[in-house]
């Protein structure tokens, strides 16, 4: 399937292994990525906090660019925060024709216009709803047998439920669980799996922010997870990049590897860990990979 692909900023900045691994995984799943390289940052909620109309207009521009991609079935992102920020703007744009017209008037300067009703899915949702877990499982070359994986969703992709289309039929807040199982791994439940990683307040209350990250990582350690997996690169920053500081804050050793969603999928599809950029994490995913043979999961 062909998708208008929004990679986000951080996947091309501080977590380049995310964008890289997505590019490696896509062809294996017959996903054609048409990158929206002309679009700008979603604002991650911060621009909306500054000026709502500005955030809505910038995102409407991205949506309009996505709608121009010929033959694309939908727009796809690889960042929970992008999903949340975009969904919020789309909710307003879709709710009022009058407001949409107003925003489109601003966009008309470059001949763009957003039409109500864009479908925008995080890679996680696309895997479950478009590709299907059975079809995915059929492609698994290296099942994640004996690998104990803790899901870490990120707030923006699980709340608020109504806006994100989560209900009894679309249990999007449980998809990571289902995905890990479909790849042959063992799902590890722990207290923090749908809580906040703390990243949004890293510059505003660093201690509280790192306490959040440290606590969830510690819960995962206590639940004997081998690694976490997250669909959000901002969560990844607080959980992986900042893990040395989080350890200092909560006063315990953590050493918990955190994988990006496409990395976990890529491993199961038989890709080489290095190809997936797993050597670029602050916390080495040694529990996930036997580096000498590139075999997934330690034989238990």
């Amino acid at each position: 399937m062909k998708v208008a692909y929004w990679p986000g900023c951080v996947s091309r900045g501080f977590t380049p292994e995310l964008h890289g691994s997505m590019a490696k995984v896509a062809p294996l799943l017959d996903i054609e990525l048409v990158e929206l390289d002309r679009a700008c940052c979603t604002g991650a909620g911060v621009i909306a906090e500054h000026n709502q109309e500005l955030a809505d207009t910038l995102n409407a521009r991205t949506f309009a660019l996505a709608q121009q991609v010929q033959g694309a079935e939908l727009m796809m992102n690889i960042c929970s925060t992008c999903q949340g920020a975009q969904s919020e703007c789309q909710e307003r744009l879709d709710a009022s024709a009058e407001y949409r017209d107003h925003v489109n008037e601003t966009l008309s300067a470059e001949g763009l216009s957003y039409e109500k009703g864009l479908t925008n899915k995080n890679f996680l949702w696309l895997l479950v709803e478009e590709i299907g877990l059975d079809a995915l499982a059929a492609k698994v070359k290296q099942p994640l047998t004996n690998l104990r994986v803790g899901p870490f969703y990120g707030c923006y992709i699980v709340r608020p439920r109504k806006r994100l289309g989560i209900d009894a039929e679309h249990r999007r807040d449980n998809y990571l669980h289902e995905l890990i199982a479909a790849l042959g791994g063992t799902v590890i439940d722990y207290a923090g799996m749908r809580k906040c990683c703390g990243f949004p307040i890293i510059t505003m209350n660093k201690d509280a922010s790192l306490k959040q990250a440290g606590r969830h990582l510690g819960d995962a350690v206590d639940a004997e997870a081998d690694c976490l997996v997250t669909p959000c690169p901002l969560c990844h920053l607080n959980l992986d990049l900042q893990q040395p500081l989080a350890e200092r804050t909560v006063g315990r050793e953590l050493e918990m590897p955190v994988l990006h969603l496409p990395q976990l999928v890529g491993l199961a599809l038989g890709l080489d860990p290095k190809e997936l950029g797993m050597n670029r994490h602050v916390v080495r995913p040694t529990s996930v990979i036997d580096w000498s043979t590139s075999v997934v999961g330690a034989a238990a």
Partner: peptide, 20 residues
Amino acid sequence: EIVAGGLAVGAVEDAAPPAS
């Protein structure tokens, strides 16, 4: 109302009720 063209087609099911 199905909007013609691009990504809007068939989008209704999932993206539709952006609840207030």
